[in-house]
Design a protein around this nucleic acid. Structure first.
Lengths: 149, 149
DNA sequence: GAATAATATATTATTTTTTTGTAGAAAGTA
DNA sequence: TACTTTCTACAAAAAAATAATATATTATTC
């Protein structure tokens, strides 16, 4: 039930780019440094996010990455679902070609997992990157103590 | 965000044993056959569930496994948390000795993950194995036996 | 004592995740 | 054009987590 590094990194990338939206193009090296993500791994992640329609890029000198949409129009939910796949804890619920399952015992738990998945979606769909960015900038400037510890 | 086989198997084991609670001891081979779980893997799972206080066992001929408590007193939530660990999607929220995290960007997401984890817990803590068992037997046999506990 | 079944520990196998490497294509700059 | 920077693609190695198997031991019943 954990978020992977790939997912975690992806969220940080979008958060970072949200901070310079809409003007600047940020290049890989800078994102890698600021968010402490391995350079080559980050390249894959950026490419993947671009395919998902979250980023745009510009090649060549002075090139780099930028958000494809306004931070307010990107929700945590759509990014997580794109990167991590379904939020349902079992796979039989929402796959495109659900095979008729002959395990009755699994079906007993399925409604619970459906409820869980729906609940997760509701929560993360309600969070957008404009909000997250504002929170991020406040924390960076020292106005809000770090969460938890 | 998926349940592992270990977790899935564990839930099926408890569901199966709930059906013969409180009288009978069921031995590994029978559980393995009925719920289609690899025999040796199942041994580990049963041992683990026993350590967690969910099962009791008896060695030797006529030995086997049984639930340690009534199905109604075992919730889906406590089993899942025992087997899969925390339901929080990131680890820094509820570990015993949380190290002060110096990644501000992670802290921006943390409150969301806390909400998600809390929501998951609320849902799965509300489901007990008596309910699941009744549903299971209904699906399997089309009626609920009259010797309910 | 023989058969049965749980217990313990170790090891192998498989899959997924994370990371790195090499090569090339596109775009900007001088 | 030559050159540099940066994105793009594919491959593959390294690491970690998961799933499954093997061997030997201990306890119980008959």
């Amino acid at each position: 039930m954990k978020i992977t590094y790939k997912g975690d990194y992806s969220l940080k990338v979008i958060l970072e780019l949200a901070c310079s939206y809409p003007d600047k193009l940020i290049h890989i090296e800078e994102i890698s440094r600021k968010q402490d993500i391995p350079r080559k791994f980050l390249e894959q992640i950026l490419l993947n996010l671009k395919r998902g329609g979250f980023l745009i890029s510009k090649k060549g000198a002075k090139g780099g990455y930028s958000l494809a949409r306004a931070p307010r129009d990107i929700t945590l939910g759509e990014v997580v679902r794109y990167i991590e796949g379904s939020v349902y804890p079992i796979s039989c619920i929402d796959c495109d070609t659900p095979s008729p399952c002959n395990e009755i015992s699994s079906c007993v738990f399925a409604p619970v997992w459906r409820t869980v998945g729906d609940s997760i979606s509701t929560i993360i769909d309600g969070v957008n990157f404009e909000t997250l960015k504002e929170d991020y900038l406040l924390r960076k400037n020292g106005y809000i103590p770090d969460f938890q510890i």
